[in-house]
């Protein structure tokens, strides 16, 4: 099984992000997704940084994939998406049908935000060039396994295996709203929350995470203890979503599990409020956790 590092879903400081990707060059991962999926206003890195980061990762033997925006509304966002798709030489992740349309048959990764829930839709994506499919987070493993069995030859299947779950997108920026700031004058306040802002119920249950226009789970979905089931279901790649703490240890633990090295390193406790969850895997509420 391969390990992939998903696109950075938060706004980190440039230096922190550059350090993060520099460290990934030496990390035991196979694929790294770069680029912005959440907010078209964010500039995690400067324009000239990205190619250098990609070069370094490729020199270290990683496959680099350029992710694209999930919620595309403005012409400027379409233009950015088109530029990324055109410059990616078939290494882009489509998160909106606009990217599939613009790609016009060139190879791509069907991202988790395309709604692919059945064989007919998956086949359609393959006809349009999909060489890999990242399953929507709410799909149970039984469905992924069914689609895996009948998959067109050569298609890889990737599953969101670690991280706060990307659950919803809105026109509104909930981070700016929570600080009474208008979206156009947000001051990039999300930079102060490297793992998003945890939203609690009034009983102090960590429930969701505000990350700009994206809403995530507060709990981290962690499928580390299910690696064998995932493999048996035909999953080829596990996606680990970047977080600000303990990420190297997370990668190490997943690598040990996928390689079945027999290493018994205990998985690090979650540094984020909300603990771990894995309910989607069984077709239950995503927030649930198997005991």
């Amino acid at each position: 099984m391969k390990l992939a590092v998903g696109p950075l879903l938060y706004l980190w400081d440039r230096g922190t992000a550059l350090d993060f990707y520099a460290e990934l060059c030496d990390a035991p991962v196979d694929i790294v997704y770069l680029g912005e999926v959440v907010c078209s206003k964010r500039r995690v890195l400067q324009k000239d940084d990205w190619p250098l980061v990609a070069c370094a990762l490729e020199a270290a033997g990683k496959e680099v994939v350029w992710s694209t925006l999930a919620l595309i509304e403005a012409e400027s966002e379409l233009a950015t998406m088109a530029r990324i798709v055109d410059g990616s030489a078939g290494h882009f992740e489509a998160n909106d049908m606009a990217a599939v349309q613009h790609g016009a048959g060139s190879p791509f990764v069907a991202g988790p935000h395309l709604n692919v829930y059945n064989e007919a839709t998956l086949r359609l994506m393959v006809e349009h060039g999909a060489r890999r499919w990242v399953a929507p987070v709410e799909l149970p493993l039984t469905t992924i396994a069914t689609l895996g069995k009948s998959r067109p030859p050569g298609l890889e299947i990737e599953v969101f295996a670690y991280g706060r779950l990307p659950l919803a997108f809105s026109a509104r920026c909930f981070t700016a709203r929570s600080q009474n700031r208008p979206k156009d004058d947000c001051g990039f306040i999300c930079r102060e929350y490297p793992d998003g802002i945890t939203l609690y119920s009034r009983e102090d249950q960590p429930f969701l995470t505000l990350n700009g226009i994206q809403t995530q789970s507060a709990a981290v979905q962690n499928l580390w203890s299910h690696v064998d089931e995932l493999r048996a279901a035909g999953v080829d790649i596990l996606r680990l979503s970047p977080q600000s703490q303990d990420f190297a240890a997370v990668i190490r633990a997943f690598r040990d599990a996928t390689d079945a090295t027999g290493a018994t390193t205990p998985f690090p406790e979650s540094a984020l409020p909300g603990g771990y969850c894995d309910g989607y895997l069984r077709g239950e509420a995503g927030i649930d956790r198997a005991v």
Binding site: A168, S170, R172, L208, T215, G286, I287
Partner: peptide, 21 residues
């Protein structure tokens, strides 16, 4: 809906049942 319809899994996260499924 404050979320983009078809792009919201909040309900399935909390209950296992969503608009999409």
């Amino acid at each position: 809906c404050v979320m983009a319809e078809g792009r919201c899994a909040l309900s399935s996260f909390a209950t296992g049942h969503s608009p999409n499924t």
